[in-house]
Design a protein around this nucleic acid. Structure first.
Lengths: 235, 235
DNA sequence: ACAAAAGTGTTTTTGGTACACCCATGG
DNA sequence: CCATGGGTGTACCAAAAACACTTTTGT
């Protein structure tokens, strides 16, 4: 039987992660500048190779940590990419992950500000290999998830205002929502807790901060979170 | 740079496909009996290894064909499984695919009836490695897809009755729907065409056959197909 | 005639959407 | 006092859900 195994082709397995962040205005992706060996102006996703005795999730976590110093980011598997010529150097199958992080939180933990940079989704640079395709798929899935589940809070600080939350969802879906309808829908899920504190400095009136009711949030309680029944709103 | 590549661990890459079918009553999965070399009573998904110069989708298609003689089945990638010890013989990363096929259609094209068999989801045998986990994930995704898009017709013959269609959806979601509401919702999408022919032999009255309006079906026109806003209905 | 499944309409309730004005504050 | 963004309520409409009786036909 070992024979049968030994006859098969072996491949490198890479892990590439699409890290989404939100700066209050635009949805962004964290990219890494490729080492000097290549064309200097190519950016790539957070990537690395799978090592022995390491699971896929584990490897993706480790690679993200090595690039950024970030731990405990929830990485979710996206898809495997295996075009035989996707990496011209050697046959590599890449398993992609996506994560949402809070940019503020991230920036002060950031290990390597020289080689990593946030890019707005609308002005992405040229990406390595098939990484642009990976980003596109990640965005598509992000939209699908965000309309069904209350994700997106990972992209915000622990306390955030409703206008901030709305901006985020508007950035994800690249559209605008009615303020009153948005507020009503979000509050009706009861996953937010209003604080007594107001945001200072941004607007004159100041907006109340909210925090996540983590109990309810974990319970997955808000299925069909934003029920966007109209595809035009999403696409 | 080649050095850097050469230092990395290489793995086998397997493709495993979850093939769903529907026999009019239960949702089923097509499994293969393992070769004589192993414990005889283990069944597995349609699986095989990735070959050189072959993309993932291509390989999954080829493997399905080799096991079953079926071509042109729409296989959709599900997820990669990469626990380092999932295959005790050698480190293997498995990329899984799922597909929906019409059992009747399948059975007469079937190349190898001895080693492949349909199993009801509710009475699955012991499966190889982590294949049970793969099936569970596939079922979860099937539900999610079926509530958003009018998939499921692949599982039925070219002409089918509304009660059959309802049975199928009830099997997918493991619940019951109101006949009148179901009918209304399905017909309102206009993706079905009523035929003049009635089903004979099953019920005394006989139910009208319908066919798929393939134009509208391809157009993806029925987003949020069954809008199942109540998670209890789904879970 | 009766059993078994097919087929069909109405009412209620829920939730999505559209829409406009007052409020609080910093400048 | 005014400009800026924050906050709120209502009316309409579409669609989901609940609900029961009649029809057809094989036995």
């Amino acid at each position: 039987m070992l024979d049968l195994y030994n006859k098969q082709t072996k491949c490198l397995v890479a892990l590439d992660s699409i890290i989404f962040g939100f700066d209050g205005e635009n949805l962004k992706v964290l990219l890494v500048k490729r080492g000097i060996e290549d064309n200097l102006e190519t950016w790539s996703l957070m990537g690395g190779w799978l090592q022995e005795d390491e699971g896929l999730n584990e490897a993706a976590d480790r690679i993200l940590f090595e690039h950024t110093g970030l731990r405990d980011v929830y990485l979710e598997q996206l898809a495997a990419f295996g075009n035989p010529f996707r990496d011209p150097v050697m046959r590599t199958v890449s398993v992609t992950y996506k994560a949402l992080v809070n940019i503020e939180d991230y920036d002060h933990k950031l290990a390597n500000k020289v080689t990593t940079k946030w890019f707005s989704l609308k002005t992405l640079p040229k990406l390595l290999f098939d990484h642009a395709e990976m980003v596109a798929l990640a965005v598509e899935r992000l939209k699908a998830n965000a309309s069904l589940y209350p994700i997106g809070f990972e992209l915000l600080p622990d306390k955030f205002t409703l206008p901030q939350l709305q901006n985020l969802y508007e950035a994800i879906f690249d559209t605008e929502f009615d303020k009153r309808n948005f507020t009503r829908k979000i509050l009706s899920t009861n996953i937010l807790i209003k604080m007594n504190e107001k945001q200072k400095g941004f607007s004159k009136k100041g907006a109340f901060y909210f925090t996540l009711n983590k109990e309810k949030y974990k319970n997955n309680s808000a299925f069909n979170f934003l029920s966007l029944t109209n595809p035009d709103k999403i696409l």
